[in-house]
Simulated assay, not measured.
Amino acid sequence: MILCAGESLIDMVPQDGAFRPLAGGSVYNTAIALGRLGEPTAYLWPISRDPFGEVLLRPLAEAGVNTDLCPRTDRLTTLALVTLTGGEARYSFYDEGSAGRMLAPADLPVLPGEIQALFAGGISLVPDPCGAAIEALVERDGARLPVMLDPNIRPFFITDADAYRARLSRLIARADIVKLSGDDLEWLHPDLPPEDAARRVLARGPRLVLQTGGAAGARAHWAGETVAAPAIRTAVADTIGAGDTFNAGVLASLRRQGVLSKAGLAAITADQIAAALTLGAQAAAVTVSRPGANPPWSHEMPALSP
């Protein structure tokens, strides 16, 4: 079972002069996508007892995601108020003292034995105490479990860039797989071209650094020659949740190929990496073909081979 640990929230999206509440969050989206692909998946993040908590739980249940590790709390759900300026989305977060924000290292549960991999990332890595909690989880369990990290860097959410860079540096050194977009790489290493920046991240310790570029496809940097996979051509409705779904496809493929373990990743081959990138791209292509973060179900995938 793959454990996804990180933020869920409610996006308040403008619609007809009002706001429509939609379940979201980078790590939450990946958990939903994994469940819809038929992967055994668990989720870890505090869920409020307020009405929005039920909005978050329903898609998880429908996707078959196990939420036994999610603590319930009377603190309120994080809200992200979305405003559109010239077609560009801007976010205002109502997050202070919220259910997820207040997750502390002392709140972390002991992970059950069936957890075989850990996925973490998103804005849950930024503020404390929740950022410290996710870092503590990776520190505690990353020695035995393979860890995939997608920081999904949002500069507008970062108030102390130096502290966040230091946290990311520690997490990257612990991670086995790191996924970074072109924007992520530019924020981490503004003085380097994307390929060189990805190699710099690889040198910190991960087995794989996955570099995504939308229509440019994805590349994997590892001990061997760079592996590339093209994006799947499709009519794009929007790109919300595309990277989150890509992560799910990669993890699903690695698990199906039997290499989602410390030993498996140490002995991974170029063909196995290519298969993982391809499934990630196939899943992401379905998501971008329809509005919002709406990952594919297994029956909507062109193939469910590794």
Rank of each mutant, 00 (worst) to 15 (best):
residue 84 L to D: 09
residue 84 L to W: 13
residue 221 H to G: 01
residue 228 A to H: 07
residue 235 A to I: 09
residue 176 D to Y: 04
residue 236 V to E: 13
residue 98 S to H: 08
residue 10 I to L: 08
residue 157 F to V: 14
residue 56 L to W: 01
residue 120 A to C: 14
residue 189 H to N: 00
residue 10 I to G: 06
residue 293 A to D: 01
residue 133 A to N: 03
residue 214 G to D: 03
residue 9 L to G: 05
residue 288 V to D: 03
residue 187 W to M: 07
residue 102 M to S: 14
residue 84 L to N: 01
residue 275 A to D: 02
residue 240 I to Y: 02
residue 66 N to M: 03
residue 69 L to A: 02
residue 7 E to T: 06
residue 159 T to H: 04
residue 178 V to S: 13
residue 19 F to G: 08
residue 232 I to N: 01
residue 37 L to M: 07
residue 63 A to R: 00
residue 145 L to V: 05
residue 155 P to L: 08
residue 133 A to Q: 13
residue 18 A to Y: 15
residue 85 T to Q: 15
residue 51 P to Q: 06
residue 13 V to H: 04
residue 304 L to E: 04
residue 135 E to C: 14
residue 78 T to M: 05
residue 232 I to P: 00
residue 208 L to S: 02
residue 22 L to D: 12
residue 33 A to G: 08
residue 66 N to E: 11
residue 292 G to T: 12
residue 172 I to G: 05
residue 197 A to K: 11
residue 186 E to S: 13
residue 151 P to T: 13
residue 240 I to V: 15
residue 69 L to G: 11
residue 139 E to Y: 07
residue 149 L to I: 08
residue 280 G to F: 12
residue 152 N to W: 01
residue 19 F to W: 13
residue 55 V to R: 15
residue 109 P to F: 12
residue 257 Q to K: 15
residue 187 W to Y: 06
residue 123 I to F: 09
residue 106 A to V: 15
residue 59 P to M: 07
residue 218 A to S: 08
residue 253 S to R: 11
residue 205 G to E: 11
residue 292 G to K: 02
residue 137 L to T: 05
residue 185 L to P: 04
residue 151 P to M: 09
residue 76 L to W: 09
residue 144 R to V: 07
residue 265 L to I: 03
residue 8 S to N: 14
residue 197 A to Q: 00
residue 118 L to N: 02
residue 37 L to P: 00
residue 176 D to H: 10
residue 177 I to F: 13
residue 208 L to K: 00
residue 262 K to G: 04
residue 279 L to V: 13
residue 41 T to H: 07
residue 301 M to C: 04
residue 192 L to K: 07
residue 49 R to C: 15
residue 182 G to C: 09
residue 90 R to I: 10
residue 278 T to N: 12
residue 232 I to M: 02
residue 12 M to C: 12
residue 185 L to D: 00
residue 24 G to T: 00
residue 1 M to W: 11
residue 96 E to D: 11
residue 75 R to W: 10
residue 211 Q to N: 05
